[in-house]
Amino acid sequence: MLDKLIGVLRDYKGDENFVITPDTTFEELNLDSLDIMDLVMQVEDAFHCGEINIDKNVKKVSDLLRLIIDAQ
């Protein structure tokens, strides 16, 4: 699952070599709030899961992964 999420994130960034780990933060991904909403839609579609609601506690890739698991 993590590999799939990292693939979605790399695809979103348009950089196949972007180094992404569970501890990578959204700040490091350099995404603004509109990017994050857009990304979340793509993640929901990719994982065929329910709605993911990002809040201020979601800071890292691992936090997003947890939300995906909860939404499935």
Binding site: L34, M37, D38, V40, M41, E51
Partner: peptide
């Protein structure tokens, strides 16, 4: 809404 993603999510909700 400032973007398509926010609009689509809102309509879903």
């Amino acid at each position: 809404v400032p973007s398509i993603a926010v609009a689509v999510k809102s309509v879903r909700n």
